[in-house]
Design a protein around this nucleic acid. Structure first.
Lengths: 165, 165
DNA sequence: GTCCTATCGTTGGGAAACCCAACGGTTCGG
DNA sequence: CCGAACCGTTGGGTTTCCCAACGATAGGAC
């Protein structure tokens, strides 16, 4: 039972049309490219994306607990431990017991952490420029706006509504 | 805790997170949400995202080889084997040796595969509607356009015309 | 015809991110 | 005092991505 098709398959190697119109698919592919670009850029200062995000959050919002960091960035607690182990091991952040709540670790950025972050920000920004090279500044701003509204469907997860007690 | 160093540039009253303005970060978060929503939806018909993508590509572009599928969808050959093993095991696609090139497998969709795909498409579309619920139709179209232009330049695994090793 | 290169499917390994569930230590309220 | 809830830690697991081989096959060079 041979299907009698005479198809020069080499002509259309791509384009499943339907899937390419789905935001979920496009988001996945675009995120993969962004992850690759930014990952390669940050690797030049020995950082990974998540490490960069944590370092940036700590440097901006002062001493934070690991749980607060995880909620704010959407990182799992398991991974947060490993990330902070790495950052602390390289002297980029400090993990000190919180004085007011001994359950928490007060994560703070060090001087060298702030210094490295400055370089990482430059590299990350450059990678993002390359990622959005096909977009005009206005289009990029629009993309950021649209994505922000997709990521936060209702309220940010940092503030759960009153009810689940 | 007041950081008292004078910012040389325009200081914003509050800069919540520099990370959240980076397209790469937003893309990652948005893609994660889309993956979760679509994944849950497709799970109701026993499909995963990649399985759905492969099934859709095969149903659209007729018999294809595994390598062509992988290039068109950006899926690794290793994973493609496993995906097709699953799809074939459930009778959704057939893997027959290509008559013109015995290296290739001619992957084709079956009747039940096409039937299941129809349901999967509806579920996937609904999940994407929920994903982009905060966007107007025009905004969603704009998002698709912007994302398409971001994904294009790289063209993940497309064969480079010249290059080589 | 014989080589040589490239591709195809398959198998192997590993990395990174994601999610869930438990445990001891701690805080807080009843 | 006791239970509920939180925190950090460790333990499972899954999925996607990338690299490198191997035998089998196709196409071209000679």
């Amino acid at each position: 039972m041979v299907i009698g098709y005479a198809a020069p398959m080499a002509e259309t190697p791509r384009a499943p049309a339907h899937i390419r119109t789905l935001p979920s698919w496009l988001l996945g592919r675009a995120a993969a490219r962004g992850h690759r670009l930014v990952g390669e850029a940050l690797a030049r200062v020995g950082l990974r994306m998540m490490h960069h995000a944590v370092l940036s959050a700590v440097a901006e919002s002062g001493p934070l607990s690991q749980a607060e960091l995880g909620r704010g960035l959407g990182i799992d607690r398991k991974d947060m431990v490993a990330i902070l182990d790495d950052l602390q091991g390289e002297g980029l952040v400090t993990r000190a017991p919180d004085v007011t709540d001994r359950r928490k670790n007060a994560v703070a950025v060090t001087a060298s952490g702030r210094r490295l972050l400055r370089r990482a920000v430059r590299l990350g920004d450059a990678a993002n420029d390359e990622l959005t090279a096909a977009l005009s500044p206005a289009e990029r701003a629009q993309l950021v706006d649209l994505l922000t509204r997709i990521v936060q469907p209702g309220e940010p997860c940092a503030a759960p509504p009153h009810g689940g007690r």
